[in-house]
Simulated scan of single mutants.
Amino acid sequence: MEPAAEDLLDRAVELARQARDADDYEAVWEILREVAADGPASLLAGTDLLASSDPVVRAVGCDLLGCASDLHEAVRADAASALLRLAPPDTDGDLSWSIAHALGSTHDRRAAPVLVSLAEHPDSDVRLQAAQALPFMPPEEVVIRALIRLTADQDSPVRNWATFGLGSQAEADTPAVREALWARVGDEEEDVHAEAVFGLARRRDPRSTALIVELLEAEQGIYSWGLEAAACLRDPALLPHLTGYDASSPPVATALCECDPAARRRRDDFAAALLDAVYERSPDADPAVFSTLLETGLILRTTHAEGTDTWSVEALMERAHGDARRAAREI
């Protein structure tokens, strides 16, 4: 690494020693983001810092690897390997926080066991980092169980992130997941309650209709991702409560379409006609229309020698003014 970068890292460690709160540490993050601009060099530097006997230096090394992973997907696997060599995590809260935060940035499935362990750390800030990272791990039973435990955490930010992760990011849909989300309905923290409702609506749990209506009718209105959850629910009973929202807004337009049986039928008819039109023009493309779990809308997929292409059926329908043959020609 260039001498200038080494000097910056020395300064970062010095500032980290002096930091007393998150605001103080922001100066450290600024330096680390600057150093991390050079992905390969920051990977080597961060890995070297992890070898230190000083927990502050190791924590800065973790944070540097996390920044590098945020900026450069190519370094994530090697960064995760270096971070996992620190496992089992040190009980030191600051170092454990940095390990959890950095592993979350790598999105590496190998990190799941460490993050599950950190989800039970005595420091709520460490548990918060685990709650934010676990939804990006493979939805294995042990990961889902850890998220379920965190939804009942005594710390409200941890509960909020875990409920969001379980309800809106994780794709698991089991009785245990729904029970955990339902347990957070009525939580003293309004955001936790809302995230639980959204998670249930995404799973088309009929109990969530009345709760979505309450959020739609609330004075402050509903979050945009709440509108997406309403769209997943596909309940015509929501239509009268969506009329007060701006229909030109994409989340509102999607909710109106999904909750209106007639609009959904027009979209589905277009999708069927589009599938036929694409197959007629290019049968080797092996076209398919599908939807994804806990998401709205339909996707058209075609295959070719180089791989696959996908398009939003709704976007094609709008662009081609409902003409399936025109949409097939354009793609």
Score class of each variant (00 low, 15 high):
residue 22 A to L: 12
residue 121 H to D: 13
residue 323 D to P: 02
residue 301 R to F: 02
residue 13 V to E: 09
residue 3 P to D: 08
residue 183 A to I: 02
residue 315 A to C: 03
residue 10 D to L: 12
residue 205 D to V: 04
residue 146 A to I: 11
residue 108 D to V: 01
residue 327 A to W: 04
residue 274 L to G: 10
residue 32 L to S: 11
residue 227 L to H: 05
residue 216 L to F: 13
residue 186 G to H: 00
residue 238 L to G: 08
residue 91 T to L: 00
residue 163 T to C: 13
residue 234 R to N: 03
residue 201 A to F: 04
residue 111 A to W: 05
residue 285 A to P: 02
residue 150 L to Q: 10
residue 125 D to A: 14
residue 64 L to H: 07
residue 220 Q to I: 08
residue 150 L to K: 00
residue 316 L to A: 10
residue 133 A to M: 03
residue 224 S to N: 10
residue 283 P to K: 13
residue 22 A to F: 12
residue 12 A to D: 12
residue 2 E to K: 13
residue 122 P to L: 05
residue 164 F to I: 00
residue 116 V to E: 15
residue 102 A to V: 11
residue 205 D to A: 01
residue 124 S to E: 14
residue 72 H to I: 01
residue 142 V to D: 12
residue 101 H to R: 11
residue 223 Y to W: 11
residue 17 R to L: 12
residue 276 D to E: 14
residue 119 A to V: 08
residue 96 S to Q: 11
residue 232 C to I: 10
residue 252 V to H: 10
residue 13 V to P: 14
residue 43 L to A: 02
residue 213 V to M: 11
residue 13 V to A: 15
residue 146 A to W: 07
residue 170 A to T: 15
residue 39 G to W: 00
residue 198 F to M: 09
residue 276 D to Y: 06
residue 318 E to T: 07
residue 105 S to D: 04
residue 320 A to I: 05
residue 160 N to K: 09
residue 262 A to P: 10
residue 292 T to D: 01
residue 102 A to R: 14
residue 312 S to V: 12
residue 257 C to Y: 04
residue 181 L to A: 06
residue 172 A to Y: 03
residue 193 H to I: 00
